[in-house]
Design a binder for these strands. Structure first.
Lengths: 201, 201
DNA sequence: GCGGTTGTTGACCGCTCGGTCAAGTGCCCC
DNA sequence: GGGGCACTTGACCGAGCGGTCAACAACCGC
C-alpha cells in the first residue's frame, strides 16, 4: 500500500494507527473490528481501506514502526559510550523510558508473540536487539568486567527481567521509569546474593 | 457446567481440553473455531457444548487447571527444604521442568495475559506465586543470605528471567531443562558482574 | 475555475462464527 | 430386558465479521 499521501492523508493515517493501537491494546486484536475503529473515529469504512490493505497489514505496520522507534531510542542512548557495562545499563534505561511512553504498543508486541501469524515479524527485530546485547556482553567478558557465561543466556535473561518489570511496575502500577530501571540494573549486575565483591583489577 | 460424568464422559472432556489446548497454542485462541476443534476430533458440535458452556469457559478451564498443576509441582519441589535460597532455586527448577512438559499451556498463559477478558483469571494465580516467592526472599534477607532489596522487585525479576529462558531455550530450541535452570539460577543469584564474593558469616 | 487526483461515504456481499436444539443412540443399573 | 440418563448428531440460526465499490466531495496545481 504505497499511496501518494498529502498532508491531510498522512494525518489521517496517523490517526488510524494511533486509535487502532489503543483499541487493540485495550480489547485485543481479534475482538476489535474494523467497524469499531472507523466508527470510533467517526469516519466511513472506506477510509480504513484507503490507507491499509487489511486489518492485518495495519497491525504489522504498527509493529514495524514500534520496533524501529525503540531501536532508534536505544542506539541514541549509547552513542559515545565505550564501557560495555555502561552501554548495557543505558540500553536498559532507554528501553524502560520508551516502554513507559508506549504502553499500548508494548502490549501489542506481547500479543504478537503468541500468534504464529505475527511472531515472525517480531522475531526479526528481537533477534537484532539480542545480537546487539550479545556484542556488549562479549565485549564485557573480554575486558574482564563480566563473568564468563554464555552471552546469549545473559542477553535473554536481561531481556526477561526488563520486560517483566516494565509490565508489572511501569504499566500496571505506573511507577517511575528511572526507579524501575535502577532496580533492574542492580538485579542484573549484582544478582541477589549478599556478599561484597572484590572487583577485578 | 457441573454435569455428572461417567468414565466415558470424563475421557471425552479430557480429549476436548487437550486437543483445544494444542490448537489454541498452535493457531491462537480466536482463530481457532469450535468447528475446527470438533471436526478435528471427528465428533459433532453438540459434544463440545455438552461439556463446556462456551469456548471462553473452556479456555478459562484450561488456564485454571494449568495454574493448579504448576503450583502443585512447585509446592512438592520445596517440601522439607528449609534454606530459603535453596527453596527459590528448587522453585525455579520445578517451573522449568513443568514448562518443558507443558509447552502449549504455557503459550496460552502468555496469550491470556494480553487480553483483558482473560488477564484477571491469570492474575490470581500469578499473585499467589509472587507472594510465595516474596516470602522466601524476605526470609532470605532476614537471615542475611540475600541483599536487602525490595522483595517484590526481586520476585518479579526472577519470574521474568525464568519466563524468558523458558520461551527461548526450552520451547524454541528444545534445550535441556536442567541446563537452562542452571543458567537461570546462576544469573539470578550472582548477577553478571565479575568479582569473587566474600560470603557473609 | 477547471481537471485530476486524493480522500470519503456507507450500503452491500459472502462467509464464518459461536451457539441451539429436536431427535436419536448407547450404556448402566435395577 | 427395559427405563432412564449420559452422550451424540448435524442442520440450523442470527449476528457480525473483513472487505468491496460506485458514487461523490474536497482539495491542489495550473
Amino acid at each position: 500500500m504505497n499511496r501518494r499521501l498529502t498532508q491531510r492523508g498522512r494525518e489521517r493515517r496517523r490517526q488510524l494507527m494511533d486509535y487502532a493501537t489503543e483499541r487493540f491494546a485495550e480489547n485485543g486484536y481479534h475482538p476489535t473490528s474494523v467497524a469499531e475503529i472507523v466508527t470510533g473515529l467517526g469516519v466511513g469504512k472506506g477510509v480504513f481501506y484507503w490507507y491499509f490493505q487489511s486489518k492485518e497489514e495495519l497491525f504489522l505496520e504498527i509493529l514495524r514502526e514500534a520496533q524501529t522507534d525503540l531501536r532508534r531510542a536505544q542506539k541514541q542512548a549509547i552513542t559515545d559510550v565505550d564501557d560495555p557495562v555502561r552501554r548495557i545499563e543505558l540500553g536498559i534505561r532507554a528501553t524502560m523510558a520508551w516502554s513507559a511512553e508506549h504502553r499500548d504498543v508494548y502490549t501489542l508486541t506481547q500479543f504478537a508473540a503468541t500468534e504464529s501469524r505475527f511472531a515472525p515479524a517480531l522475531r526479526k527485530g528481537a533477534d537484532i536487539a539480542i545480537r546487539d546485547t550479545i556484542t556488549h556482553v562479549r565485549d564485557g567478558i573480554e575486558r574482564g568486567l563480566l563473568r564468563d557465561i554464555e552471552p546469549e543466556y545473559i542477553a535473554q535473561a536481561m531481556l526477561g527481567v526488563t520486560g517483566q518489570l516494565v509490565r508489572t511496575f511501569l504499566h500496571e502500577r505506573g511507577a517511575q521509569p528511572t526507579e524501575v530501571a535502577d532496580a533492574a540494573v542492580a538485579f542484573i549486575l549484582e544478582g541477589i546474593l549478599v556478599g561484597d565483591r572484590t572487583p577485578a583489577v
